[in-house]
Write a protein that binds this DNA or RNA. Structure first.
Ligand code: ZN
Ligand code: ZN
Ligand code: ZN
Ligand code: ZN
Lengths: 170, 170
DNA sequence: AAAATATATGTTATATTATAACATAACAAA
DNA sequence: TTTGTTATGTTATAATATAACATATATTTT
């Protein structure tokens, strides 16, 4: 069994989140440049808002912020930006929460398994090849050809369960 | 690796669906009786509508039918019945489709992995212990304690991919 | 640079999904 | 049969998302 490929881990309280966001934004700019797609000011700002925490954010929460910044902001403003960002792999939708999280590895296409802490709300992302392979095998047994997997695991993260008592909050 | 526990397989065109529905309804009645909860006429009818096919059904499609049958039907009518049926394990929500499917094994609590054919819309349900264990192991590596897993796999079922050419449609 | 084209955003309206809150009815227990 | 409990009816509204068309901005071609 290979090691899990952790794309976005649960973070310690001590982590400097601005670094996550800055890093994501600059990877996004490079990636968009190399792909010849446009990370416009609006899209960049929406991505920034998605990265404002490690908790998934709702479209209308983004909209509430945008309305204070750009007149004429409306639902399509947000949904179109989110659609672009999802298409480019910068953002993933958490289906079970109708919410959106930033992707820690937007440059390459991948599957995702999300771990969602229902205590602190934080989301970790992995792309675990063992899980992918096992599901593919089991699906193949039933003659099913996979296009996309949605895996959203709910529970309690290590910070919230107090496993690391020196750093209680996520 | 154990054999996959298939709760609801993809069905052949030749299958008599009324049997699925009848069976589900009678298991539901027994299960509710033994639990001392009430499968009222309304709840029973909603379950029947959920079982009207192997494709997930939308709450408002149920409502459209109920409105022709019971005056006073309104969104809460449907959502309350669905909530009961979900709580009792008779129905599962497919989060990525905002839709509902009948469970083929409501009598005992289980995890689910859904295979969703985006050609014919049919949904198969499994509870595969290997998948559950692997995800639990990987999550444990990250210090994460699982409460519930949402696994919705999109792709093409065997009937639609023509693997069984004698019985093309699901 | 100007015109033409393509892409992105603004704007208004509406569709879809889901819940809150309170009233009445049906059922179960005492 | 009265009392309490659970289920349903009813009205209203919240939350999530898309359609359709107008305008603006960016890119390419002339
Ligand atoms: Zn961070
Ligand atoms: Zn947590
Ligand atoms: Zn059937
Ligand atoms: Zn199919």
């Amino acid at each position: 069994m290979r090691k899990t490929n952790v794309i976005t881990p649960f973070k310690k309280l001590s982590h400097v989140h601005q670094q996550c966001a800055d890093s994501a934004l600059s990877v996004a700019e490079e990636t968009c440049n190399s792909r010849g797609v446009r990370l416009t000011k609006l899209r960049r700002r929406v991505l920034e808002l998605v990265w404002s925490s490690h908790e998934p954010i709702k479209a209308y929460d983004i909209l509430d912020i945008l309305r204070n910044e750009r007149s004429g902001s409306a639902p399509p403003t947000v949904y179109r930006a989110l659609e672009f960002l999802q298409d480019e792999g910068m953002v993933h939708k958490i289906e079970s929460l109708n919410s959106y999280v930033g992707c820690g590895a937007p440059a390459h296409n991948h599957a995702s398994q999300f771990l969602i802490c229902h205590s602190c709300g934080a989301v970790a992302e992995m792309d675990d090849i063992d899980i992918r392979n096992l599901i593919a095998d089991k699906a193949a047994d039933m003659g099913f050809k996979i296009d996309k997997e949605i895996i959203e695991v709910k529970g309690i993260c290590s910070q919230c369960s107090g496993e690391y008592s020196s750093d209680k909050k996520c």
